[in-house]
Each structure stands twice: as structure tokens, then as C-alpha cells.
Design a protein around this nucleic acid. Structure first.
Lengths: 339, 339
DNA sequence: CTGAAAGCGCTAACAA
DNA sequence: TTGTTAGCGCTTTCAG
């Protein structure tokens, strides 16, 4: 308790305590350049004894190297994004790079602010969800001079690199599978679109493919906020009351799909005979449901890993393929009849 | 496209472009000190035209002020922690302070590393989940000279400040409610304890209170990894097969509780007559279940908000109560008989 | 209201 | 293998 622990320790303190120059202390602490074992030991011991923690702010300024990767996502409560994040972290582990997360709450204005904040720390790269950004945000990204990877969606033109799936295609393929299975009276439930471009694109692809089969969505409903599981129940109940002859329900995410599934089972519906169901994302949660909901894996972890690898490669000065379109696969579960 | 956009812009660029000294440009950009409207306008215009983004690294070094709050939590996939985080963000909004998240995966070693990393950015404060840390971690926190708030648990001694609930007490109260409701053959399911101190403490409080009522846990099982919902199903099925006369199941979290609930309903168990259930956390998900699971709110968002406020107050130099024990309340839902 | 000078704590580059 | 000298881009401080 003798230290007036208010001035944080500096390299100089370690230097004085060990009788080694600041420069050499710095070398030891970063494992850079050749340092004799004797000196190294003395430095390490002094640093540990004092409890020295290097100041990365100063280090970053001096070296103009900031080993951070900005990750900008709409939400943390959606499960989907933490999984992407896990993929990123995993790929970045064993690398000096570290992810730093910013959340936009699906708001373009907030996204712009968050990007500005993050870029002002001069990160080594940016990974951002989606292809839709304000003009200012796109300009900032383009001008940043660092690798920018837009993830999760590939229906559009990226500022720089992109990794994801085509949600339009995902919607289309699900529609085709549903039609092939013989369903014809189809209802749709999802989030209010303006907020969620990927859900919108899935819906567009979906209706487009239905139209090609001469079918229109027979009923639809959109929600925002609240417990997704509960919303799924409520919307499903309301929709079945309103349009009792529906024979299929397509949900824009698995969570509301799970809610709908639970409600329908309670009501004694024959699934997938009387009515079929499908969601989207392939969330782990589904594995605990009484029936396996049909869904489509959004390749979340893989997208994260891939995006991180692109940043890593670019930082290392490599040239890499920067337009990666993953192909999600339908899993029919127990709620979508075999074609 | 004329700019060789490889050297990031500096204050000097804005200064030259606007014909105003760097110092004054800096003042304008930070809204500090008096600047004439004319100059301000010229500076702002130049900055915007160039697309200047300030360098916070340099700013932080010069001012030795870093408006970051390090938030260290075990996991992002647990739902509980994103909610705490939301509380923190909410309280920090409208403040210059910004949260930066680090994840430990419930590993003390990783926690130590993450803390070290974060402290090396010289944040204005630290919020860390739990009271259990390695000696080195505690030492680092104590020596950091910044406000440290340990959250979510109050059964122990904090390095500095703490905000949370007593999990021992939470377990105890649930046990008392269960006994009061007349249940006697009680099973417990939860995560493997060494990883999760809070779950352990709840279990300790629980068994202790049962013992006081002359009762022992009749069966118990612990899991790790996998989909919690699925685990809840599996464990419940296994336990009911093993110990069919159980009349109550206490789950260490709502997710496995929900899995158990779904399974029991499918099997046609009379709930809460034949068997009662309770979980822990009060997660929003429960609202979509066919029955409302009895649970106990862990006050997540409030803990986050409170912790953030303590940091804010301390940063502002105020003295505040730094041992805050919240009192969670049992919600009986549909799965715990009225006493 | 505006500007000039002197660092913040560290590392690149060079010298010894 | 080790030390010395200049900054990194900004803000603090003090002078106009």
C-alpha cells in the first residue's frame, strides 16, 4: 500500500526499477528484437512486481497500429448476432486482432454514429452487418482506408468486401420447397420490414417465387418488439382465426415460428398434414422443441469466421476473394412435408 | 477521388483547409471554449468537406481521458448478459462514456487476460460480472485506480463497488416457497457448478433451506454445453425415469426449465398438481410458453443501470453508496402451487 | 477569441 | 544486444 496509486505506472517506472532503458523494457514487454535472457528476466520481474500494465493508447499512437476490429451489428438480443460474433472471435483468437462491438438497434442514424465513434479509434478493419447504410456512413467506410467487410447479406453492392447469403434467394428456395410439397394457402409472419432489410429481402424472394407458381400470400402480419415467442403465438392465433384455411405458415425467424408451433400443437393441429410451418435461421433453440421446425441455416458462425479471415488477410497485405456468397440449405424438420 | 486516401486526415489538414489554427479547430470540434460563429462555421465546413474523423487515440493520450467503460462478462449467448449490457448502455447513453465488452467464457484465465487487455486501454471504469476472480485479476483491479463495479452477485467481498442480488438468498427463498406450497420430493437440475458461481450459490442456499425444513434434494443432475432447452428436456426425462416420485423440479435457469416444462406437458403431467416447477432469471422467453414457469427475476437490466450509474458518479468525483443489494421477487407463474 | 509551445507514453529508426 | 533521438496527433497551458 505504499504506492500513491493514483498516477498509473509507465514504462519509465519499470525502466528505473529494473535499471534497463525504456526502449529495452518496451522490447521485452512486446517480445520484439533480441534481448539477453538476463535483462529480459530483470525487466519481467520488475514489471510484475510493480504490477505494470502497458498503455495501449500510447503504444497505438506511436506505432500507428491499432489491433482492433470494429464489429457493428443491429442487436445483441437477437441470438443471431452473438453467434456471428462468436465466429469472429474464434477466428481472431490466436491473432493480435481483437473485436470491439457496436450496436445500432437497427437505426441508420445510430449506425452512422457508432461507425464514426469506432473509426475514430482507427481500428485495423471493420465488419458491419448489412449492405444498407446512410450515404454518410458509406462515405466514411470508403474513406477509412481500412478493410471493410459487410456481412450477412449479399443482395447489393458492398463498399469493399462482403460475406453472407442471398436472402432473396433464401426466400425463393423456401417458397419453392413449400409449393413442391403441395401447400397452396400460405400465410406469412415477420418483423416490420423497414427495420430489417434481410427479412424484407427474404419476403420479396418468397412472394416472387410464389407468384411464379401462380400463388399469392393468403395472409400476412408484421410485428415489432416484445417476446418473439409470445408474438409468434399471438400472431398465429390471430391469423388462424382470420384465415382458417391456411395450410402453411412461413415465419421470418425461428423464434416466432417456435411460438406458432407451440400454439398449433396445443390446438391439436396435425403438423405437417393439416398445416406446415417453416422459420428461418436454424437457431439452436429449435432442438428443444417438441417438433423440429423446418428452417434454413443462415450460416452465422461461418459468416463471422470468414469475415474475420478476410480482415486478417487484408491486414497482412494479402489479396483475397472479397465477395463470398454462402449457400444455406433447407432443413425440413418435422413441419414441412416431403415433396 | 483525388485524395490519395492512404494517410488518414489530421487536425492539421482541417487547419490548413480552413485557415484556422489547429488549436481552434480542436476547440470547435470538441465544443470547448469560446469560438466565434464565423470561425466555427468555416472549420465545421472544412472538416465535413474533407470527411475528417478525429483520432481518439491521440486525443486520449493528450488528455489522459478515455471515455470507455470496460464491461467483462462470461458469455453473450446466455441472454442474461446482453440484458445487463442493455441496462449499462441505456444508462451510459447521453453520457460521453461508452461501454466496451469483453467475454471470458466462464474461464478465470481468460478473464484475467481480458481484464489486462481492457485495462491497458486505460478505461474510465470497469464493470465485471461476479465476485470470484484470480488473485492476479483482483490485484490488477485494485491497482487500476479506476472505479470497479462487480455485478450480479453480492455473496462475497468486492474489490471496490458491487451491485447485484444474493444468489444464496434467492435459492433459499425459492426453497421456502416450494416447501410452503407442500412439495416434498424435490429434484434439482443445473449447470456444472465450477463454472458458474452464481448457480452454485443458489444451489447452496436452496439445499440449506431445504435442510432446515428437514428435506434433502431427492435427485440432481448437472449439464454443460448444448442447447439449454434440449438439455432441459433430456435431463427431465432422465430424472423422472430415475426418480418417478419427484413432485417438484428446481432448474438453475429458465431455459432448461422451459425444456422440462415442454416435456412434462407432452407427457401429460398435471402441473402444478402432480409436479411443480421453477426456474431462475425471469427471461422474456417464458412469456411465449404454454404455461408460465415459476421463476425469480434476476434484476438484470436494473443491475446494469445501477452499475453504470455508480461508474458515472465516481468518474464525476462523487461519493456514492457502492454496495447495492437488490431484492428479487418470486413470480409463481402457473407451475408453483399457491402456498 | 485565437495561437504557440510543450508534452501525453510509447515505438520506429538509427547509432553505439 | 542496448541506448538515443524523434516524433505519433492531439490537448493543456499560457500568452496574446
Amino acid at each position: 500500500m505504499s504506492r500513491q496509486d493514483h498516477r498509473p505506472l509507465t514504462l519509465r517506472d519499470v525502466s528505473e526499477a529494473s535499471g534497463v532503458s525504456e526502449m529495452t523494457v518496451s522490447r521485452v514487454l512486446r517480445n520484439r528484437g533480441d534481448v539477453s535472457d538476463a535483462t529480459r528476466a530483470r525487466v519481467l520481474q520488475a514489471a510484475k512486481r510493480l504490477g505494470y500494465v502497458p498503455n495501449k493508447i500510447a503504444g497505438a499512437l506511436a506505432s500507428s497500429r491499432v489491433n482492433l476490429v470494429a464489429v457493428v451489428i443491429p442487436s445483441l438480443s437477437n441470438m443471431v448476432f452473438p453467434e456471428v460474433l462468436a465466429g469472429i472471435s474464434q477466428a481472431l483468437d490466436e491473432t493480435p486482432l481483437q473485436p470491439v462491438v457496436g450496436v445500432t438497434d437497427y437505426s441508420p442514424e445510430k449506425e452512422e454514429k457508432v461507425l464514426y465513434e469506432m473509426l475514430s479509434w482507427r481500428p485495423s478493419g471493420v465488419i458491419v452487418a448489412g449492405l444498407e447504410h446512410s450515404d454518410a456512413a458509406r462515405a466514411m467506410l470508403a474513406a477509412s482506408g481500412i478493410p471493410v467487410v459487410e456481412i450477412m447479406d449479399t443482395d447489393g453492392t458492398p463498399v469493399d468486401a462482403m460475406v453472407g447469403i442471398s436472402h432473396r434467394r433464401a426466400g425463393r428456395e423456401m417458397a419453392e420447397a413449400i409449393l413442391a410439397a403441395g401447400y397452396r394457402r400460405i400465410g406469412f409472419m415477420g418483423t416490420k420490414m423497414p427495420m430489417d432489410h434481410r427479412a424484407r429481402k427474404r419476403f420479396e424472394g418468397f412472394t416472387q417465387a410464389l407468384a411464379r407458381g401462380g400463388i399469392e400470400v393468403a395472409d400476412q402480419e408484421f410485428y415489432s418488439g416484445g417476446s418473439a415467442l409470445a408474438k409468434g403465438r399471438e400472431m398465429t392465433a390471430a391469423m388462424m382465426a382470420r384465415t382458417p384455411d391456411l395450410d402453411f405458415l412461413y415465419y421470418s425467424n425461428d423464434m416466432i415460428g417456435a411460438g406458432g408451433l407451440l400454439w398449433l400443437l396445443e390446438q391439436g393441429y396435425d403438423i405437417p398434414g393439416r398445416i406446415g410451418l417453416a422459420g428461418f435461421n436454424g437457431v439452436e433453440l429449435l432442438q428443444g422443441l417438441p417438433r423440429q421446425l423446418a428452417t434454413m441455416d443462415a450460416c452465422r458462425a461461418e459468416i463471422g469466421r470468414h469475415a474475420a479471415r478476410i480482415v486478417m488477410a487484408r491486414v497482412a497485405g494479402h489479396v483475397v476473394d472479397s465477395h463470398v456468397v454462402l449457400k444455406p440449405v433447407i432443413s425440413r424438420g418435422d413441419t414441412l412435408r416431403r415433396g
